[in-house]
Nucleic acid binder design. Structure first.
Ligand SMILES: [Mn+2]
Ligand SMILES: [Mn+2]
Ligand SMILES: [Zn+2]
Ligand SMILES: [Zn+2]
Lengths: 140, 140
DNA sequence: AATATAAATCGAAACCATTTCGATTTAGGA
DNA sequence: TCCTAAATCGAAATGGTTTCGATTTATATT
């Protein structure tokens, strides 16, 4: 539950460890769900009054480029971010529609689906993403 | 390749068959790829000079509500639509990253993944979507 | 064919999350 | 401590999308 691994990742990618970046990672590490840029702005505003929204947007994008955060887009067409707990492994996400909790699922059995597409449609599958939604153990 | 089945669906859902709705469906039936609202506006503008963009946005949304069009959101954060060839069946989509062609894939083998999540995470999976990207048979 | 009317379209403005950019401040290496 | 590229600020612009009152149209009914 330490954020050191994320700070290390940040540094490795040539980013400076600034108070705002660190606080952003800490914020997400305490959350099990995703946050909108507005929510992040609000939370960070408690520690950094007057923080610029452009700073929040930039930090969120940098952290997602580094693989620390995952970015999703909801039906409301806005961006949301959440902390990736297995950044170096291919995996998929389950999102609780009630509490917005994220569960990361390492199981991936799409080989058959990819084989089907390669064979029947003669396509080359380069990547895929699965999005699962429902109710988590706390909400169902 | 007739659009009658889509017009029927429109009528069943209580929509009037207007020239612009019909032309929109015809436009998509000739395309194998997705179109942005701007592209639709441009194409429809050939037949209906001065057509309002709000009309295009509304028609696209209605057609997607009816299941005639599928709406996706790309990394550029804009909306795109394409004609669904199997509106009454659960299926997934392969998108060619070069020519934007859409292939609809009826095979779905996510039962194992859902079972894994139900069992290990104690979650209730209500729906899922798979997005596959790569190169189609024409582009690879 | 004419009428009625709810639905569809227009058009222009508003919306608002996100992006841009030049000025200022800061983290961290030398 | 100094230096400098990186980070942050802040205010304005951006632009795809939505809104809404006025006008037009599709289609069921007479
Ligand atoms: Mn996978
Ligand atoms: Mn499926
Ligand atoms: Zn939940
Ligand atoms: Zn292609």
């Amino acid at each position: 539950m330490t954020i050191d691994v994320y700070l290390k990742k940040l540094k490795e990618d040539g980013f400076k460890i600034t108070p705002k970046r660190k606080a952003t990672i800490e914020l997400f590490s305490k959350k099990k769900s995703y946050l909108s840029p507005q929510e992040v702005l609000e939370k960070l505003g408690n520690h950094f009054p007057g923080i610029s929204s452009s700073t929040v947007y930039r930090i969120l994008e940098e952290l997602q480029d580094t693989g620390i955060l995952i970015k999703i887009e909801h039906e409301d067409r806005q961006l949301y971010y959440f902390l990736c707990r297995m950044p170096d492994q291919h995996h998929h996400h389950f999102i609780c529609r009630k509490c917005r909790r994220i569960e990361e699922v390492e199981l991936c059995n799409l080989k058959e689906l990819e084989r089907f597409i390669s064979k029947n449609l003669n396509c080359k599958v380069e990547n895929h993403s699965v999005r699962l939604e429902g109710l988590c153990s706390h909400c169902k």
